[in-house]
Design a protein around this nucleic acid. Structure first.
Lengths: 162, 162
DNA sequence: ATTTAATGGTTAATATATTAACAAAATGCC
DNA sequence: GGCATTTTGTTAATATATTAACCATTAAAT
């Protein structure tokens, strides 16, 4: 049990906590032939009627190059449509197809129900505290955070024996 | 702002919170030519001297098939060694190379320092609360959690027009 | 009116995530 | 001893993540 480093690792804990919850939703989403990201996107569009890719990126925490592929596949599945804007030929509008709306109408309530089950299991007050703390982490106004000074670069990843 | 669904989404918040922290470490890790997962693994081995793949999976929150590739690449980079156990030919021991130990010796303190900076920016008490809540989410003893009943499967992902 | 810089998306290359299927070694049982 | 079962890792196929480079369009500056 030699611990050479302090082992506190919040990002890691967030990942585990996320998985602790997600594992109860994954079966539902998968049952409908969707991936987690596809569902996140449908859900986001469902809440806003229509969105532009960069908005989806922000809401769903997906990077732009990644989103391109996801949307493309969802288009192939006839779940969303992408239409270029007239006034600004760079921008794009993403909308749900009727098919996707029917899907969300079936899937959505199951997710909500599963949330209720989890909230009961975890306890409402714990869930409440979590929301509050997450808000503090995410939405808080903080000045810019300093970066430690980095040493000059060496070639650590080189494929030559040490 | 039509919200057809309740929009509470804890897993999503965990993801954002994680990114809120991780973005301050990514530059450091990248500077040394490592990926986030590679660093997680080195750090884990650094704390335990040696680990078996399934232990790494559990500690680092990486699935087995994914780990196979990561370890393989780290082996190519001469950062870790994989040796099969004599007594049980299925199992494997993963260790750091001296090169990796030097890397950790340089990288580790920078991570710790960056943690201190972040802790200051976020406030020690917030960080403390986060650790406590995460423990409640992760380590808590809870009975099995029910799953909502799923409807019969339809072919939502089919590539035929609705 | 040009030139320049910024914006919104995409492509490319590599790394990781996810699910299913698989293979070999160990374990338990008869 | 022989066979079913479990355990540990891996392979395969597909989806997403990450960084860098790129391209077309628009906005800004001269």
């Amino acid at each position: 049990m030699t611990r050479k480093l302090a082992y506190r690792n919040l990002p890691q804990l967030f990942l585990r906590a996320r998985e602790e919850l997600l594992c109860h939703f994954r079966p539902i989403i998968g049952h409908f032939g969707l991936t987690e990201q596809q569902w996140r996107i449908l859900r986001a569009i469902g809440e806003h009627e229509q969105l532009e890719p960069r908005e989806i990126c922000e809401i769903c925490q997906i990077l732009s190059p990644s989103l391109t592929g996801v949307l493309s596949r969802m288009e192939d599945m006839h779940l969303v449509t992408r239409t270029r804007m007239e006034e600004d030929q760079r921008r794009v509008i993403v909308r749900m197809t009727p098919k996707a709306e029917r899907l969300v109408a079936e899937l959505g309530p199951l997710i909500v129900e599963q949330y209720r089950i989890i909230e009961n299991a975890f306890g409402a007050e714990l869930i409440q505290e979590l929301y509050e703390l997450m808000d503090k982490v995410i939405a808080a106004e903080r000045g810019p955070i300093a970066q430690v000074r980095l040493p000059p670069k060496k070639d650590w990843s080189g494929k030559n024996p040490p």
